[in-house]
Amino acid sequence: MEGISISEFGSILMMQGFNGLSVFSVLLLMALGLAIIFGQMGVINMAHGEFLTIGAYTTFVFSYLTQTYFPSLMSTYFLFAIVGAFIFAGLVGLLVEWLLIRHLYKRPLDSLLATWGLSLIMQQIFRSTFGAKEVSATLPDWLMGSWQPTDTIDIPLNGLFVMGLTIVLTCLVGLFMYRSRLGLKMRATTQNRVMAGAVGINTAMVDRMTFVLGCGIAGVAGAAFTTIGSTGPTSGSLYIVDAFLTVVFGGAQSLLGTLASAFTIAQTNSTLEFFMTGSMAKVITLLSIIAILMMRPEGLFSIKVRK
């Protein structure tokens, strides 16, 4: 560490912290949709990563079409792409729920296996459509470059954008779950399905909407993902284990828990990365999560529900 002045060390810490924050954003985006589907419905969607990939490819297609036909719109297309990714991933989610998931609500372990099969099929479809090579969307100019508050600190703009998007999306999801009629119905169905049905909530429809919403959020995560990395057929599946651990670690039925656990995991990982190799940092982070989960299986935050 010789040769590094205090201010430089401070800058490194800042940038490492920021690094952790952007990992946190991606994790949280991934985990938000999962938390809704797994936490509210108890369905393990192993194909969740593929919905992220759908969002990413949708953004790529938007960028390609804009570049070819409407080059003048390049600076704004990204906002439309986010909406497009949400809608398209949501529609695929609707189809999947109708064909597959609704038959498996009573068999959570089987839904895990079936959605794993689905993820294999989707990966192959991506590969046949877009090729095995990774593609990347052309980013608008305002997402390129970096922000330099001092000479030694260098913060990339796309990272800031992803972070901003994460904050907005998390707030929207929170508002939706706790302030809207449908959110109320979703929470009621989670807490007591039979009673919710008895007071006139169409629980099958609520399940469907929950699944579609979760998939749509994964699509938005995919759109955000294109600003920081390129997209390949298996991009989404790389994050699936981390995302599930995030949800379980946070306490499956709590959005706040998901937020806290994504933050803890991401910061632990990027802090450890400063001291050791990336793979060891990851191993130690995951091991600590598992150790904590063994001591506290219900996760960080848990709602007490009478079973």
Binding site: F244, L245, V248, M280, L286, I289, I290
Partner: peptide
């Protein structure tokens, strides 16, 4: 149930990362 499945899966991921990393 599903928690056990997820955690055993994470253990598989950890061991793979460990073997490849070291």
């Amino acid at each position: 149930g599903v928690y056990f499945a997820i955690i055993t899966q994470a253990i598989a991921a950890i061991l793979t990362i460990l073997i490849i990393g070291q």
